[in-house]
Nucleic acid binder design. Structure first.
Length: 620
RNA sequence: GCCCCCGUAGCUCAGUGGAUAGAGCGACGGUUUCCUAAACCGUAGGCCGCAGGUUCGAUCCCUGCCGGGGGUACCA
């Protein structure tokens, strides 16, 4: 970090984004339409209609357009074009319109109303953003309390590639929502009480190695976990392929059943199992924390499954008492879709609870203690059905506050290897998260081999930022819901939609300012007028001022890839600007204006990357 | 069987009701006495899986089909 995104002081937050201001003007125009009886537009119709005010596809159509006239034409019993004329006329009279936008021209095509931002307004807005600590991004009018539940690894086994998306996407959403002005509560719902502990307890008693545990607790626990898992899950063909495993399996024919028994004992409060659990936990947590520090991911809370364990029996009793859950085949479940469909199980036949039970207890606890407006579960898409059932059960349960909280499963796809199968090592093992990061950093380091003027320590720091940034960015820039193919080569490309390209753009900004010996603080204090006269400056300035619009869109659908797409577009515009126009070598007042635009671009890129949890470097 | 997701350029992916469907890689061509050329500019490359439907307008919404993936009562 260069520290340059700390605030210049003194700027107002501004009157909202250009899109906000134009939507307000369209709202005025549409209400006028209704008041004059031209077209019935109810207050409830407005939001959807105003969503049709957005940036144009191409600069030749202007900066923003409104396309609602076509859809409304039938309702108004007019030709779309005529209605567009009516709207455009009222638009020009809307309060605040003419200060920001040029008079709308005649509607284009079937009824597009195209609008161009006035040059003076653009200059004023970009100059204001320059001295604004929020870079021109407005705060939300109505802050909400939003719980972001993400990462949630199972402790007692190493974090692996499967945890990266939840961790990176969740962290980014939390940062973004907080910057927007919401009250964000991050919670890591650790898997610290599940069947894997039954496996470890059972395995420790049979295969545990005290010396190995002392030397490297996670490695030893991981070894035991994997071994027991293979034993308990072994299919006949696995046993046929692995004589050693087969021998073990013959020795422990009841492994699967006994593991579940140990889990149940732990849950029932068996002192010996509890003692083992307490013995294993600290090492597990320390190991996980180490990775989070490296990823620069932080949580407000770490309320794992074990935290909710005391409430589970009460949850089941309550569900039964209210007639929602009942006994079936020895287990207890909620029949959501009728008796013939599989129920949502909250207690197993052996008395152990399930993650459904914990999740229900967690919802109740969060409602009681945090009273949130939204709870986001950043969990992979394969658990979609679980969350459907969970949310449906929670609503039927009728907890206080449940009717006003939005429970949202923020689903994401699987990380695949080159072969299109879930990402694995060549040997077929799950890829550990730490070694994944190491390899990304190592490859980034190799790429800096030719760099002059960087000592080894500096190169290491750059490689860490670039390597980890590449991995995070590759994940965030994909449409969340689709699977994506993991490729070090692609994510470390210096061109294209990668973290490195954005980081490089930031480094070039640094280069210009450093080369010019620019005193940034003094530049901020002088609050210069930025005048985007050249089309490339204009295009860059407009993109910068869309930052707030993009964050609003990201929040609406929990889609960080909208932010990465905008950053990529922004960095591209900067590169085009930088390439075509002299900055240090042009005359005043252009020189200061362009320097300010440069500096602001750098701060905006840095802030945008920061909201993705990605750092930047001064040189690369 | 039922439910969910995905089929867009050779490859990896954006775009999910608007204007001539976009990037990167790969291919071909251009730009450096000049602030980081790890860059920029350009060319070629597409029945947006198939067939119907809704709409002024469909890659996007609905229905069916084909192909791929995932889920589907005691793992999470």
């Amino acid at each position: 970090m260069t520290g340059a995104d700390t605030a210049p002081s003194g700027a107002p937050g501004g009157a909202g984004t250009f899109r906000d201001r134009l939507r307000a003007a369209f709202a005025h125009a549409l209400r006028g339409l209704a008041a004059d009886g031209v077209c019935p537009v109810g207050a409830e119709d407005l939001p959807a209609l105003l969503e049709q005010v957005r940036e144009t596809a191409e600069a030749k159509f202007g900066d923003y357009s409104g396309t609602m006239a076509m859809g409304l034409a039938k309702k108004a019993a007019r030709k779309p074009r005529d209605l567009a004329v009516e709207i455009a006329r009222r638009l020009a009279d809307a309060p605040g319109y003419s200060a920001a936008f040029a008079p709308p021209g005649d509607p284009v095509g079937p009824g597009f109303i195209n609008v161009r931002v006035r040059d003076e307004a653009l200059s004023a807005a970009i100059s204001a953003a320059f001295v604004d600590e929020r870079l021109g991004v407005p705060r939300v009018a109505a802050p909400a309390t939003i719980v972001v539940d993400f990462s949630s690894p199972n402790v007692a086994k190493p974090m692996h590639v499967g945890h990266i998306r939840s961790t990176v996407i969740g962290d980014s959403l939390a940062r973004l929502l907080a910057f927007r002005g919401h009250r964000v509560i991050t919670d890591n719902h650790l898997g610290d009480w599940g069947t894997q502990f039954g496996m470890i307890i059972w395995g420790w008693r049979r295969f545990g190695d005290e010396a190995a545990l002392a030397a490297d607790p996670t490695a030893e626990l991981g070894r035991i976990y994997r071994l027991v898992r293979r034993l308990a899950d072994a299919a006949p063909e696995d046993l046929a392929a692995d004589p050693q495993l087969a021998a073990l399996a013959a020795e422990h024919p009841g492994a699967a059943r006994e593991v579940l028994l140990e889990t149940a004992r732990l849950h029932e409060g068996d002192p010996e199992n509890r003692a083992l659990w307490e013995r294993f936990m600290p090492a597990c947590l320390a190991d996980i924390e180490k990775l989070y520090r490296r990823l620069d991911v932080h949580f407000d809370h770490r309320l794992g499954e074990s935290f909710f364990q005391p409430f589970l029996a009460g949850v089941v009793d309550d569900l039964v008492a209210r007639g929602l859950a009942r006994e079936s085949r020895g287990a207890i479940g909620v029949f959501l879709d009728g008796d013939d469909k599989p129920p949502f199980l909250v207690r197993k036949g052996d008395g152990a609870f399930l993650y459904a039970t914990t999740d229900l207890a967690t919802i109740r606890w969060r409602l009681e203690h945090w009273n949130p407006d939204r709870i986001l579960y950043v969990v992979d898409h394969r658990q979609g059905q679980h969350f459907e059932h969970l949310f449906a059960t929670a609503k039927r349960w009728g907890l206080p506050g449940i009717e006003r909280v939005a429970l949202e499963h923020v689903a994401f796809g699987t990380v695949l290897g080159d072969d299109g199968r879930p990402f694995k090592t060549r040997a077929g093992d799950t890829v550990g998260l730490e070694s994944l990061l190491d390899e990304g950093v190592e490859r980034a380091f190799a790429l800096t081999a030719g760099d002059e003027g960087l000592d080894d320590a500096e190169r290491r720091r750059v490689a860490e930022t670039v390597g980890i940034g590449a991995i995070k960015y590759a994940d965030l820039c994909q449409n969340r819901t689709t699977d994506y193919v993991f490729s070090y080569d692609k994510m470390l490309e210096l061109k294209g939609n990668t973290a490195a390209y954005m980081q490089y753009a930031v480094a070039r900004v640094e280069g210009v300012l450093e080369k010019g010996g620019i005193d940034r603080e003094a530049l901020w204090r002088s609050a210069p007028a930025i005048v985007p006269a050249d089309p490339r400056e204009r295009s860059l300035a407009l993109a910068i001022l869309r930052f707030g619009e993009v964050l609003e869109d990201v929040e609406a659908d929990s889609r960080p890839n909208l932010l990465t797409a905008w950053l990529y577009d922004l960095a591209g515009r900067y590169s085009a600007f930088y390439d075509a126009l002299p900055i240090l070598k042009c005359a005043e007042p252009e020189r200061t204006s362009r320097l300010a635009l440069c500096d602001l671009t750098g701060r905006v890129l840095r802030k945008g990357l920061g909201l993705l949890g990605i750092g930047t470097v001064r040189t690369m």
